[in-house]
Design a binder for these strands. Structure first.
Length: 310
DNA sequence: AAGACGAAAGTGGTTGA
DNA sequence: TCAACAACTTTCGTCTT
C-alpha cells in the first residue's frame, strides 16, 4: 500500500472531498483513504517486482535497455547442422570428425527441445501477465498463476491442450485462491479462449494439482458492484450483512455468487431508500433481472427481511 | 413510460447410473 | 455414454407507480 496525493484521473473523492487516495495493489483498487470509497478498480501495478539496495543492483535488475533484435534471435533458432556427412567441398567426412558431427547433432537436437519448452513457457507467462494487466490484477495473483502453469508444464500435461487455455485457467484459479473475485466470463473476455474451454481446463487443473478452492463468497462481489453503481457505503455494508445471514441459513450454496450479491444489494437499496433498479444491478452483475428477482424473493422470504412487504 | 413481476420454454453444465 | 436435474437465461405479457 502506497499513499499518493493525487492520481491522473481523480483529484477529489466524489464522496467526501478528500484528496488522499490509497492504491491497494492486493485488490487492484484505488481507494479514498478518508471514507474508503473505491474510486477505481483494476488499477495496474506498475511498480518493479524487484528491490535494489544500491546503484549496481539497480542496474543489474533493471530490464530496461536496448530493444531486442528479433532477426538475430530468429537466426539463432533456425540454424541446423546438416544431416549429410559432407564438408564444404562435398567430400565425405570420416573418422573422428564424423563422430564429432554425430555428437554435435545429438546435443543440438537436445538443446533445441529444451529451448522450445523454454520459449513456450515464456510465451505462456507473458500471456498470463497480459491478461492480468488487462484485468488490473496484482502481482501475487500473477505469480500464483505462473506457478500453476509451471507445475502443469512439469507434469507434462500441456500436450493436447492449448497454452492459452492453460494460461487462462491458471489465472482464474489464482484469482479464486487469492480471494480476488473475477468471474469466468471476465477472464474469458481477455483471453483468446472461450469460457467453456477455460472452465474445462480449470477443472482439470485443480484436479491434477489437487488444490481445494472454496466457492467464492457473494460478499466478495459486493464492493465491486457497489463501486460501479455509485452506491453509498451504508447500503454496501447492509448488503454484506444480508449475505452473512443468508450464509447462515444455507441460502448461498449452489447459487451463483453474482446473483446473490446483486439481490442483496437490491434489498439493501430498498431498505435504505437508495434508488436502484433491478435492471441496473443485473446489468453490472452480469446476470439477468429474473435471477435477481428469484434470489431476491428467496432472501426476503427466508430471512424475513422486509416484513412490511409481506 | 419505466420498472417490477412472473410464467414458460430454452440453454449449458453437473451428476450418477 | 446417456438421461435426469438444478441453475440460469430469454422472451414476453401483465401489473404497478
Amino acid at each position: 500500500m502506497t499513499a499518493i496525493k493525487e492520481s491522473d484521473n481523480y483529484k477529489v473523492c466524489p464522496e467526501c472531498g478528500s484528496t488522499n487516495f490509497v492504491q491497494d495493489y492486493v485488490r487492484g483498487e484505488l481507494v479514498c483513504s478518508n471514507c474508503g470509497l473505491v474510486i477505481t478498480e483494476q488499477i495496474v501495478d506498475n511498480r518493479a517486482e524487484w528491490r535494489a539496495f544500491d546503484k549496481s543492483q539497480s542496474d543489474k535488475r533493471s530490464r530496461v535497455g536496448m530493444p531486442m533484435t528479433y532477426t538475430i534471435h530468429d537466426k539463432g533458432l533456425s540454424t541446423l547442422i546438416d544431416y549429410r556427412n559432407k564438408d564444404a567441398k562435398g567430400k565425405d567426412i570420416k573418422g573422428k570428425q564424423r563422430e564429432r558431427l554425430y555428437r554435435l547433432r545429438k546435443w543440438h537436437r537436445r538443446l533445441r527441445i529444451t529451448d522450445a519448452t523454454q520459449r513456450n513457457l515464456a510465451f505462456a507467462l507473458s500471456e498470463i501477465d497480459r491478461m492480468a494487466s488487462q484485468l488490473g490484477l496484482p502481482k501475487n495473483v500473477r505469480e500464483r498463476a505462473s506457478l500453476f502453469y509451471r507445475k502443469i508444464v512439469e507434469m507434462k500435461l500441456i500436450r493436447g491442450r492449448s497454452m492459452e487455455s492453460v494460461a487462462a485457467a491458471a489465472l482464474y484459479a489464482a484469482c479464486r485462491i487469492s480471494n480476488i473475485p473475477r468471474t469466468l466470463p471476465e477472464i474469458a473476455s481477455v483471453s483468446k479462449v472461450n469460457k467453456k474451454e477455460t472452465a474445462r481446463i480449470y477443472r482439470f487443473m485443480i484436479r491434477q494439482l489437487d488444490i481445494r478452492i472454496k466457492p467464492t463468497s457473494p460478499a466478495e462481489f459486493v464492493s465491486r458492484l457497489s463501486s460501479k453503481l455509485n452506491i453509498p457505503t451504508d447500503v454496501e455494508v447492509l448488503a454484506i450483512d444480508i449475505i452473512k445471514q443468508a450464509k447462515k441459513n444455507g441460502l448461498t450454496s449452489g447459487r451463483g455468487p453474482t446473483g446473490i450479491a446483486a439481490a442483496a444489494l437490491y434489498i439493501a437499496s430498498i431498505l435504505k431508500n437508495a434508488q436502484l433498479t433491478q435492471k441496473k444491478i443485473a446489468e453490472i452483475a452480469q446476470v439477468t433481472e429474473v435471477t435477481v428477482r428469484n434470489r431476491y424473493k428467496e432472501l426476503v422470504n427466508k430471512l424475513n427481511l422486509i416484513p412490511q412487504l409481506n
